[in-house]
C-alpha cells in the first residue's frame, strides 16, 4: 500500500534520508500541478530521478527544491519489472551532499545574474531577464502567466523526443518584440532585442559574453 502526504508536512530531503538509511527499495513520486517527479531507490541507493524532461542528478537537484505538492511512496516494487534504467550511480549520501551544496551556494543564480548584467549593456538589447531552475519548474505549470518557462520546458522536451542533443537557444521574431532565449547552466537568459537592431549582430555579441 502506498503512503501519501503533502510536502508542506515533510521535506523531500527527509524522506530520502529515511528510505536510504533503511536500505529500502521504493519509488517516491511527487506531484505539483501537472508536473510530476520521481525518485527510485534500490536497496537504499538512489538509482534514478526524473522531473519533467530532466533526469538523473539534474532532476534530483530540482526535486530537492520542492516545498509544495504531494508525494506518494510505494514499497511493493517488483524489481524484475519496475526497476528503471540506472541514471544515478553515486552513493546517496554523496549525491545529497553535492546537491544541497549546489542549492545553498545558488551557483546557477549567481552565474545567471552575472551574465545578465553583462548582456544589459550590449548595444541593441532592450532588456534581459533570467529564469532560474526554481522559476522554471514552478512556472512551467502556471501556464501563460510565466510563458517563458513554458517555452523553455517545451524546447527541452523536444530535444529529448528527437535526440537533438543540448538545447542551445531560441530566436523569436514577433509583431512587437524580438528575443533570444539562451540556456546557461540549469537556468535560462532571455534577451529582448530592440526592433531597430539586427538580430544576427546581437546574437554574435550575446554568444561572445556567454562563452
Amino acid at each position: 500500500m502506498a503512503l501519501e502526504g503533502s510536502l508542506k508536512d515533510i521535506e523531500i530531503g527527509d524522506l530520502i534520508q529515511i528510505y536510504s538509511s533503511k536500505g529500502r527499495t521504493c519509488r517516491i513520486t511527487t506531484k505539483y500541478g501537472s508536473l510530476e517527479g520521481m525518485i527510485f531507490f534500490h536497496e537504499g541507493n538512489i538509482v534514478h530521478a526524473s522531473v519533467g524532461p530532466l533526469i538523473a542528478e539534474e532532476a534530483f537537484i530540482q526535486l530537492l527544491k520542492w516545498k509544495e505538492g504531494t508525494f506518494k511512496i510505494e514499497t511493493d516494487i517488483d524489481t524484475d519489472v519496475e526497476l528503471p534504467k540506472v541514471t544515478i550511480v553515486k552513493n546517496t549520501n554523496e549525491l545529497l551532499k553535492e546537491a544541497l551544496k549546489k542549492i545553498e551556494g545558488g551557483e546557477d543564480d549567481a552565474i545567471l545574474n552575472t551574465v545578465k548584467e553583462r548582456l544589459k549593456v550590449i548595444d541593441g538589447i532592450d532588456n534581459v531577464a533570467t529564469l532560474s531552475p526554481n522559476d522554471l519548474w514552478v512556472g512551467s505549470q502556471i501556464g501563460k502567466k510565466n510563458y517563458l518557462a513554458t517555452i523553455c520546458t517545451k524546447a527541452e522536451i523536444m530535444s529529448k523526443e528527437m535526440e537533438l542533443g543540448e538545447f542551445r537557444y531560441i530566436q523569436m521574431q514577433g509583431d512587437k518584440k524580438n528575443c533570444f532565449v539562451y540556456k546557461l547552466g540549469s537556468g535560462y537568459l532571455i534577451a529582448w532585442i530592440k526592433p531597430t537592431a539586427t538580430m544576427d549582430n546581437v546574437k554574435t555579441k550575446i554568444e561572445k559574453e556567454i562563452t
Partner: peptide, 28 residues
C-alpha cells in the same frame, strides 16, 4: 509541443512571425 510553444509566445499580443529553436545536433 510546438503548438504549445507558439501559443505561449503568443501572449502579450506578440504572436511570433518566426521562431528558431537550436540544438547541438539540429534545429527547428
Amino acid at each position: 509541443e510546438i503548438s504549445q510553444m507558439v501559443d505561449a509566445f503568443g501572449t502579450d499580443d506578440n504572436i511570433p512571425k518566426t521562431l528558431r529553436v537550436s540544438y547541438e545536433k539540429g534545429e527547428i
